[in-house]
């Protein structure tokens, strides 16, 4: 998996819950392309039209709080989110994203320094975020340990599959 990328910031406020990221009434869908259609529908009905693959989501505290529905992470991955930077995450959402191979960075104070549309360069291993529009540098907590191992493998499914083949 790439550990460095450049993308455009898409900003959100605090407590963006999973019902806003992916409304409950669509949880019955199981195919990725169907799930992708409802990304952020509860928070911003225009999101799917405006968001481009490679864009970066920047949010305040508790992004992805609420339900355990993996659809919230699936839908953001499916629309091509390069990574999500927030001041803190709902814990199940955080795990789901890591498991799916969608990088998530915790960066205290980030929402005050980055505006919608800013061009960002992000390194998930060092945690360095460069706002290329304003010239500001921010430091997120770098990803380490088992979560980084999962992300580097492109998600936990690959890891488990590999373990399985090693065993046999």
């Amino acid at each position: 998996m790439e550990t460095q990328f450049i993308g455009r910031a898409f900003t959100f406020g605090k407590n963006i819950d999973t019902d806003q990221i992916y409304p409950g009434r669509f949880v019955e869908l199981t195919r990725e392309k169907d799930i992708a259609r409802h990304a952020m529908e509860g928070a911003d009905p225009e999101f799917v039209k405006q968001f481009k693959a490679g864009d970066i989501i920047v949010a305040s505290t508790n992004f992805g709080c609420g339900s355990s529905r993996e659809h919230a992470a699936i839908t953001l991955k499916a629309v091509g989110t390069a990574c999500i930077i927030a001041e803190s995450f709902g814990r199940i959402f955080y795990r789901n994203a890591v498991n799916l191979g969608l990088p998530v960075l915790v960066c205290p104070g980030v929402s005050q320094h980055i505006d919608k549309g800013d061009e960002l360069s992000v390194n998930i291993e060092t945690g360095l975020i460069k706002d290329l529009t304003t010239g500001k540098d921010l430091h997120a907590q770098p990803l380490t340990g088992y979560p980084l191992k999962i992300l580097s493998a492109g998600g936990i499914k690959t890891l488990i599959r590999e373990k399985r083949t090693q065993r046999h």
Binding site: S68, R69, E70, A73, I92, F93, R95, N96, N99, L100, Y146, G155, I156, K157, I160, R164
Partner: peptide, 18 residues
Amino acid sequence: TGVGATDMGVILSTGSLW
């Protein structure tokens, strides 16, 4: 504790979780 589908997939596969 609550988990998402893929974590549960890991539990189904291995019986344990991190």
